[in-house]
């Protein structure tokens, strides 16, 4: 399972204004490879270039330099879109159509035969839980409802690669949960998923690999499990103990030359990692962040970055 499905090479995007003057350097030579069957999470603060990356991959933007390929083909080959599903950042759907009509319409664009189309549209509407409202126009929908239609729309062609830009934004907790289940379900079916999200807990739960962007630069990339393994820290988690027991454990740790940093519920470590990398990048712009763990990373420009101290440590 190492076939590369999504690939960017030296992908760069500079937004220019009407007169061709540079405005924003939104993406700086991004190299990314996503394998078949993988769930890849693209993380980063607002405005770091996640959506830009996705739009470049889909051909909604033209790269200033480099290439963005899916199935090894660039966006001018529209045939590849037959195997791609895309959920945009916000729900860009025709508001004057009903949920049923919109799925039928998108189905037609894929040349799906009428009977299959109807069946699939029905299934998807049920799946996103909109069966009760499928005959109403989208303009009467709430934000989350439209989002659900957007998701159904992205799956109408039973795609091999699914690109989700903030899939959980606007969804209620149940919807968020369903989305997570859905993504895991897609993984089970062997689909490749590229998503970006700000809900790190969810990303941690579903993603195989993540990349962290900061101001258009890739700061970290690697497998979630290895990225989150903090080698010089041991977490102890037990069922709730009486205070006396905690005191005793402190003593034991002290006896072995250790020091208890904190005891309590374990923090979301991806969040930790994320905040650290972002903070570090802000302090040392242009330097490849050094996360915890054995990141599968390209050597940083300035050689070692090991001295970085986790500033939010204790």
């Amino acid at each position: 399972m190492s076939e590369v499905v999504v690939e960017t090479r030296n992908l760069t995007k500079i937004y220019r204004d009407f007169w061709g003057r540079r405005k924003v350097h939104a993406l700086k030579s991004l190299d990314l490879e996503i394998n078949r069957g993988e769930i890849f999470g693209l993380l980063g603060p607002n405005g770091s270039g996640k959506t830009t990356t996705i739009k470049l991959l889909l051909g909604l933007l033209f790269p200033s330099e480099g290439e963005a390929l899916i199935f090894g083909r660039n966006a001018s080959d529209v045939r590849r879109n037959e195997r791609i599903g895309y959920l945009p950042e916000e729900s860009y759907l025709y508001r004057f159509l009903t949920a049923e009509e919109i799925l039928d319409f998108y189905g037609k664009l894929f040349h799906i035969p009428a009977a299959v189309r109807r069946q699939r549209a029905n299934d998807l509407i049920e799946m996103v839980g909109l069966g009760y409202a499928k005959k109403r126009q989208l303009k009467e929908y709430s934000k989350g409802m439209v989002r659900r239609v957007g998701l159904a729309q992205a799956l109408i062609n039973d795609p091999e690669v699914v690109i989700l830009d903030e899939p959980t934004s606007g969804l209620d907790p149940i919807g968020t949960r369903d989305m997570k289940d859905l993504i895991l379900d897609l993984k089970r079916q062997g689909k490749t998923v590229l998503m970006c999200s700000h809900l790190l807990a969810d990303v941690q739960d579903v993603c195989d690999r993540i990349g962290i962007l900061f101001q258009g630069e890739l700061k970290e990339i690697g497998r979630v499990d290895s990225l989150l393994t903090v080698k010089d820290t041991t977490d102890i988690q037990t069922t709730t103990l009486p205070d006396a027991a905690v005191e005793e454990i402190r003593e034991v740790v002290k006896k072995y030359g250790g020091e208890v940093k904190s005891v309590g519920n374990t923090r979301t470590t991806l969040e930790d990692l994320f905040l650290r990398i972002v903070e570090e990048s802000r302090l040392h712009p242009g330097r490849r962040a050094h996360g915890a763990g054995n990141a599968v990373s390209v050597p940083s420009e300035e050689g070692t970055a090991a001295s970085a101290d986790p500033s939010n440590g204790g």
Binding site: L58, G59, L60, V78, R79, R80, N81, E82, I84, Y86, P88, E90, Y92, L93, Y94, Y106, L109, F110, Q153, N157
Partner: peptide, 13 residues
């Protein structure tokens, strides 16, 4: 309204 985004990302010329 960016509705065109969902069109051109389908196999539409």
């Amino acid at each position: 309204k960016k509705t065109i985004h969902t069109i051109v990302t389908k196999p539409v010329r």
